[in-house]
Amino acid sequence: MSEFETAHTSFVRHHLARRSGERRGRLERGHLYAEKLFLEQVWWPLVGSFDHLHPEYEIQDWNRRSQFLDFAFLPASGGKIGIECDGFQSHVKDMDREKFSYALNRDSFLTGMGWKMLHFSFDDIQRRPEVCRMLLQLSLSPAMISSGLIGSKAQKPSASAERLSPFQKDVLKLAWQLNRPIRPRDVMERHDLSFRPARQLLQALVERNLLAPRASGRQIRGYEPIGRFPMHLFE
């Protein structure tokens, strides 16, 4: 039995032993092929453990009706992340207007209650797991990465990724999030840095051809990402 299979079996047994009634029944019925494949193809290679991860996690909607998330990640450092593995048949093709509206409203309600909701299609989990891993890592906070909750047994990063520090990765991510050129002040505010080290972080990304300076005359006004988003740096 592989390391993943051993850990997965213990993971499910651990949660079954602590549940009863419908919460136990939901785990027995709901944790199926798609959910296990997500853990095997996406979660395990990135995180390397199931600590703080809860399968078929019960939540309540605005009418206090019980619903179950495929997974909830509740790290000790704080935060609530809900993860759903969505199949096209059940979540799109067979969904009527009422169910469609409810699904959107439920996510909006959970967001208002402090949850971060992540959705992965079964097709991507099965055929493009590297995309799912990249998106999952982007969604998990840098604090979780630096604290060791992520990456303890992760796949060895590429040579390009090894050349980027956690600060550089976070600055690059921020540059892609902004709808304008990133400036040293943005980095200063995000990481509580003075001007010089903030500018050095940006210049290091320029040297790696990940950012390009945008100038007005002789003065650099900011930096913009080059090309497409570099997924391989976040695998």
Rank of each mutant, 00 (worst) to 15 (best):
W44C: 00
S49T: 12
I226M: 14
S2W: 09
P129Y: 07
L53W: 01
S147H: 11
F4A: 00
V12E: 00
R163N: 10
E5A: 10
R128C: 11
D170N: 13
G148Y: 09
R183C: 10
N63Q: 15
P157N: 08
L136F: 04
L74D: 02
G25V: 08
L16A: 03
V187A: 02
F71I: 08
Q137Y: 12
K169P: 07
Y57K: 01
A17V: 02
R24I: 07
I83D: 00
L210F: 04
L172V: 05
R106L: 15
V206R: 00
A212Q: 14
H119S: 11
G25S: 14
T9M: 04
S121I: 01
S77Q: 15
F38Y: 08
M188A: 04
E162N: 11
K80T: 09
L74A: 02
K80Q: 14
R26A: 02
E28P: 06
D192H: 12
G114M: 05
H91V: 09
E5T: 00
R26L: 08
H52F: 14
L205A: 09
S77Y: 08
L149N: 01
K173H: 15
R133A: 06
F88D: 15
D123W: 11
T9R: 14
Q89H: 12
S152W: 07
R19H: 10
D86Y: 01
A198G: 09
P45E: 03
S194A: 13
D51G: 10
L16D: 01
P157R: 11
S66I: 15
R199N: 14
A72W: 02
E207W: 09
S90N: 13
P225L: 07
D61T: 12
F4H: 00
T9S: 14
Q200M: 09
D192E: 14
Y102G: 03
V47L: 03
L211K: 06
D94A: 03
M117C: 11
E84P: 07
L193F: 14
G21C: 08
Y33L: 13
F109T: 09
I83W: 01
K116D: 10
S146L: 13
Q67F: 12
R180H: 03
G227T: 03
R29H: 08
R228A: 10
D123H: 10
V206L: 05
D192S: 13
R228N: 11
L39C: 15
E130L: 09
R180N: 09
A161K: 05
P197D: 07
L140C: 04
H119I: 07
S101W: 10
F120V: 01
F73M: 06
L135R: 15
A159T: 13
L202Q: 00
L233Y: 07
S152V: 14
E84Y: 01
F50L: 02
F4M: 00
Q89C: 03
L37V: 04
G25F: 12
A198C: 05
K169I: 00
S160T: 11
Q155W: 06
G227F: 06
R24M: 04
S10C: 02
A34W: 12
S216W: 10
H14N: 14
R228W: 02
L69S: 04
E58N: 00
E40I: 03
S121L: 09
F71A: 08
M113V: 01
F167G: 07
